[in-house]
Simulated scan of single mutants.
Amino acid sequence: MTAASHPTEQAPGNGLSAPESVQNPVSGTERRPGGEFGPQAGAEGREALREQYAAAHWDRHFAAGKGFRPVDQAEMRLLTEHVQPRPGQRALDVGCGLGGYAAQLAGLGYETLAVDWAGSSIAAVRDRYTGVVPGLEAMHVDFEDDLAVAASVPSGAFSLVTMRLVLAFMADKPAAAARVRGLLAPGGAWVVTSSLAEDLPPERAHIGLTRDDVGVLTEGWGRGCWYDLEPRGLRCFVLRA
């Protein structure tokens, strides 16, 4: 995977292929190809994360009107450069929170489905945007529940799936990646926006992706690139089959 200001083509294979020397997708420092990412936290660690950030936690968070980092024009400009939206395409925003990012996707012309596992999130999105932002629908779906996703979200239907400040909180990241693959239309892109754990103070490192997480995230995609919204800030991964 390479850092780029425009999409970078990679050859298909087992994981993203790399040139002789590439930028480390975690830190931006140079690493030689062929490095290994360690295993993700085991079942005990995943269960602890699931308990800490259960739906009830997010229900309280969004019911209080709390969101995360606001979306700005620079972020959307970079996204547009990398995914090149076309009218009539469909987007899925997973973990939509209060809906600001999903509304921006709809503004780019996507028919946008915003999902979250917190009922208060979906209530807030509907209250803020129904009848105001065309092309935006909000649905209460637990994306970590295979049956719920299969019953509510059409497979192979989305040109874009986004997770903004969400993936770090998911207990089973390989399963989340597998679900995304099943939802993307041919040629579609998965865009993950996240802090990196190593760039955060220790007490906040749990809200960022670790090196192991990045290895899981990028495994098995044919093409991809990443870009930073600011130095040592949020990193955006753009992945295509």
Score class of each variant (00 low, 15 high):
A3W: 08
A4P: 07
A4F: 06
E9W: 08
Q10Y: 02
N14M: 13
G15D: 08
G15M: 06
L16Y: 07
A18C: 12
P19S: 03
E20W: 06
S21D: 10
S21A: 15
V26I: 14
V26G: 09
V26C: 11
T29C: 12
T29K: 13
E30S: 14
R32F: 12
P33E: 03
G34D: 06
E36F: 13
F37N: 07
Q40Y: 12
A43Q: 07
E44K: 10
G45W: 14
R46K: 06
A48P: 02
R50I: 08
Y53C: 04
A54E: 11
A55W: 06
A55T: 12
A56W: 07
H57R: 14
H57F: 15
W58G: 04
D59I: 10
A64Y: 06
G67P: 01
V71M: 14
Q73R: 15
Q73T: 15
M76R: 11
L78Q: 15
L78S: 13
L79G: 02
E81V: 09
H82R: 02
V83E: 04
Q84D: 10
P85Q: 08
R86P: 04
G88F: 06
R90W: 00
R90S: 02
A91S: 03
A91F: 00
L92H: 12
G95Q: 03
C96Q: 08
G97M: 07
G97V: 07
G99T: 07
Y101P: 00
A102S: 15
Q104N: 06
L105I: 01
A106T: 01
G107Q: 04
G107N: 09
L108S: 04
L108Y: 06
L108G: 03
E111A: 13
T112P: 01
W117R: 09
A123Q: 15
R126C: 00
R126M: 01
R128V: 03
Y129G: 11
T130G: 05
G131Y: 11
V133Q: 12
P134R: 09
M139W: 03
M139T: 02
H140F: 09
D142W: 02
D142V: 04
F143P: 07
F143W: 11
D146Q: 08
D146G: 00
V149D: 05
A151N: 08
V153G: 05
V153W: 01
A157V: 08
S159W: 07
T162S: 04
A168P: 03
D172R: 07
D172F: 08
P174D: 07
A175N: 03
L184E: 05
G187V: 11
A189V: 06
T193M: 03
S194K: 02
A197L: 10
E198R: 15
D199M: 14
L200A: 12
L200M: 15
E203G: 00
T210W: 05
R211G: 13
V214A: 05
V214Q: 00
G215N: 03
T218D: 00
E219Y: 13
W221A: 06
W221T: 12
R223V: 13
Y227N: 14
Y227W: 15
D228R: 13
L229N: 13
R232I: 10
R235E: 08
L239N: 15
